[in-house]
């Protein structure tokens, strides 16, 4: 993507989520109280993380077709996804402490996320441990496809099959009310789109920087 407009749009959307997210009407719920607004800032981290990993997967599939530069792109998008996941995990831990009572609960989604992040860490280690660029690209691409499938299983499927404290998974009527709240939905989706754009921007900066330093080496 060329141009500046989509980068500015990403910032504007996130800015909107800050202003409207703090000023707008939210359901008055016990335990959650004002912290329901964390939904606008914590959940987009995960949505944009999954988006980054999906883009990474697409580049990994292209890398298998021996497309030049695809392997680097896959790796950098996964790195940004990992950053977003780290932020999502940290913000989620603070939120959990004050609503569920503990920084870490044995919620299937929390443990699934932890496993997913370890799987992606292994991807970075694997990719950095191979010297030969062609071999590196192929090996990393195959592993990244595996990592993506594991991510879907661990954060998309397994938490839905058991009881979870997270809304939309197990039975937790206290949270279900905001799932479909029409006041919150536009702000939430604006935040998701904004963070996906910012994540893409950060990844593109890293890709351009890495390509420049690679050219200098060769």
């Amino acid at each position: 993507m060329k141009g500046i407009w989509w980068k500015a749009l990403g910032i504007i959307l996130v800015l909107y989520s800050i202003i409207a997210g703090l000023l707008g009407e939210v359901p008055r719920l016990v335990i959650l109280n004002e912290t329901i607004r964390v939904l606008y800032y914590h959940v987009p981290m995960w949505f944009s993380m999954v988006a980054m990993m999906t883009i990474s997967l697409v580049f990994s599939i292209r890398a298998l077709g021996e497309k030049r530069g695809a392997d680097l792109r896959a790796s950098e998008f996964a790195q940004t996804g990992f950053l977003l996941a780290t932020l999502g995990l940290l913000t989620g831990m603070v939120w959990a402490r004050f609503t569920w009572g503990n920084f870490w609960t044995n919620d299937p989604k929390l443990n699934g996320t932890a496993v997913t992040m370890l799987i992606y860490l292994a991807y970075f280690v694997l990719r950095n441990s191979v010297e030969d660029p062609a071999k590196k690209a192929r090996l990393a691409a195959v592993y990244n496809i595996f990592a993506f499938v594991m991510m879907i299983v661990f954060i998309g499927i397994l938490p839905r099959m058991t009881d979870s404290l997270h809304p939309g998974n197990g039975g937790n009527p206290g949270f279900n009310q905001y799932d479909l709240n029409s006041d919150m939905r536009p702000i939430f989706y604006a935040a998701v789109l904004g963070w996906i754009l910012i994540g893409t921007w950060i990844s593109s900066l890293r890709i351009r920087y890495k390509s420049l330093s690679n050219e200098e080496h060769s």
Partner: peptide
């Protein structure tokens, strides 16, 4: 609170630009 969060976001945006 909104002003402070906006300043941080815009500051990071300026840095990225």
């Amino acid at each position: 609170v909104i002003s402070i969060m906006a300043i941080i976001l815009l500051g990071i945006a300026a840095y990225l630009f």
